[in-house]
Amino acid sequence: MTKSSVSCPVPTEQQPVNEYEQLKSAWLFRDCTAELREYIIRIAWIYALSWLIAGPLSAASFPPHKFIAQFALSAAAGASIGVVLVLVRLYLGWSYVRDRLFSPVIFYEESGWYDGQTWAKPTEILTRDRLIVTYQIQPILRRLQLTFALMFVLYIAGTIVWQII
């Protein structure tokens, strides 16, 4: 990012563009910015790790040697909970930064929770921040929304299969 000629009273770590850069480089959040193939692989890893918890729980309710279909469906549904929790965390984090970047006024704390201030962004900074939202963050949020939609479709499909068996 280029330095602005406008003086900003907001502490560096609370400036929305710096919050964006920090989030973009955080280990879990940077997965959303990866190529589609890498993103899918990382979501699949989260799903596989969730199976370590969901599998034994499902096996306790549906012994695999007697009820293989019920075991597989309930373990798959249980494992998807881990994925959904991670996706919710990702969505909330990116939404928070999007809202801070898009807002024309920024709330910030000078030294603690008791002395909050607001700062109106100059047009130059507001334009830059909104471009970041449009071209960087919105595609990430769309990807997360599509992932949620796919998870929902898979859940419905699993429910239909459960009713059939």
Rank of each mutant, 00 (worst) to 15 (best):
L73F: 03
Y108R: 06
D99Y: 09
L146M: 08
I53K: 08
F107G: 10
P63F: 03
I106E: 15
L85Y: 10
I160K: 11
L23N: 02
C32E: 12
R89K: 12
L131F: 04
Y114L: 15
T159Q: 12
I41H: 02
L49R: 06
P139G: 01
A76F: 10
W162N: 01
Y114D: 15
R142H: 10
G55C: 07
R89L: 14
W51M: 14
V17H: 15
V153T: 09
I81E: 07
Q117C: 10
Q14N: 03
C8S: 01
L146P: 06
V161C: 04
I46T: 14
T118H: 05
F148C: 03
L92C: 14
V6S: 14
A54F: 04
T118V: 06
G55D: 07
S7L: 15
R42Q: 15
Q145N: 14
V84A: 15
L126A: 11
V153G: 15
L146R: 14
E35C: 13
E13H: 09
W27G: 12
Y20G: 00
K24A: 12
A59D: 02
Y155M: 09
I137K: 05
V133K: 01
V153K: 12
Y135Q: 14
F148E: 05
Q163Y: 10
L141N: 04
F71S: 00
L28P: 04
Q70N: 09
C8Q: 13
I164S: 01
F67Q: 07
V88W: 09
L73W: 00
L23C: 04
H65W: 04
L87A: 13
E21F: 06
K3M: 08
T127H: 15
R98V: 05
Y135K: 08
E124R: 03
W94P: 00
F62D: 02
V6L: 10
L101V: 09
R100D: 04
I53P: 00
R30H: 09
F67C: 00
Q138S: 06
G93A: 04
A149C: 07
L141R: 00
L36D: 13
F71I: 00
T134S: 15
Y39V: 11
W162R: 00
T12S: 15
